[in-house]
């Protein structure tokens, strides 16, 4: 085997290594999910979905957890979407290139890298104690909103940037004000991209456990939350709670809970990917 052959071989070997590396993570995850489904699927029934938590594994359910997650989803959306989109519009369309805009940009990059558990500590001090919201849904939603704000801002800016300058010029040329141009042209044109980012961000919020644990969401909440000021739990916390119990029955419960959580996560991500695909096709003007 001469040198050239050896190099050729290395090239081919590396190619297969690349395929292997790309797939190993997803293969392991698939095997794991398959085993979870085989463990947990049989546990999912009407009783499981409609029961309150219990000390007995076979009587326990995720009613409070999924209703809590649903509350959190909508409250967080309500807070984070307007705030994130507004901040992105300011950065992209209004702010001048100066010191402040530099600081804002670096700051958002930094916020995106702050560990989620730190947001929990922030929420604990500001929302739970200073604003006296207690361990309520509202405190949780505020905390998670701050956590996903950088994701929404970055995605919205990308989407706004993709709107062709010619469209904006045409609108200004017609005598539209800045806001009229943004409202009538920029936002409708970038809605697909913004929606993609928002949904991915909300999917992240729904999957988070650490920050909501820190602000004091409880594992055991024996009632369904009726208002944003109620105490709550969410699916990831319920799963975490069951995982850390020795009883095998609770492990099965955890597996069943994970199936639901993953279904929601993948559904949201699927919607996001679909919207992105449609939006990108739409982008050809």
């Amino acid at each position: 085997m001469n040198n050239a052959d050896k190099n050729q071989l290395k090239d081919v070997v590396f190619k297969y290594l690349g395929v292997f590396a790309s797939l190993i993570g997803i293969i392991l995850l698939t095997i794991f999910i398959a085993s979870i489904i085989s463990d947990g699927l049989k546990r999912i029934d009407w009783q499981f979905l409609t029961s309150l938590p219990s000390r007995k594994a076979d009587r326990a359910g995720i009613l409070t957890a999924w209703t809590g997650s649903l509350w959190i989803f909508f409250l967080t959306a309500l807070i984070s979407i307007p705030l994130g989109i507004a901040a992105a519009i300011y950065l992209e369309e209004y702010s001048k290139k100066n010191r402040l805009s530099r600081i804002l940009e670096i700051n958002i990059t930094n916020l995106a890298g702050v560990p989620s558990v730190i947001y929990g500590i922030l929420g604990l001090e500001i929302f739970v104690r200073t604003w006296k919201l207690g361990g309520s849904l509202l405190a949780g939603a505020f905390t998670l909103s701050l956590l996903i704000l950088p994701i929404i801002i970055v995605a919205t800016r990308e989407a706004i940037k993709a709107v062709p300058a010619t469209i904006k010029e045409a609108s200004f040329g017609m005598g539209a004000t800045k806001w009229q141009t943004i409202w009538h042209q920029v936002l409708p044109s970038s809605a697909g991209g913004i929606a993609t980012g928002v949904i991915l961000a909300l999917s992240r919020a729904v999957g988070e456990a650490a920050p909501v644990i820190v602000i004091g969401a409880l594992a055991y909440v024996p009632f369904v939350a009726q208002s944003p000021m109620d105490e709550f739990t969410v699916l990831p916390i319920q799963i975490f709670n069951w995982v850390s119990r020795p009883d095998a029955g609770f492990i099965t419960n955890a597996a069943a809970g994970i199936i639901i959580l993953l279904a929601v996560t993948f559904l949201l991500n699927g919607i996001a990917v679909y919207l992105r695909y449609r939006w990108q096709r739409h982008l050809k003007w």
Binding site: T166, I167, E169, A170, S171, G173, P188, W285
Partner: peptide
């Protein structure tokens, strides 16, 4: 303008 720029509507 130079390039036709109708709004995507």
């Amino acid at each position: 303008f130079q390039k036709p720029n109708p709004f995507p509507k």
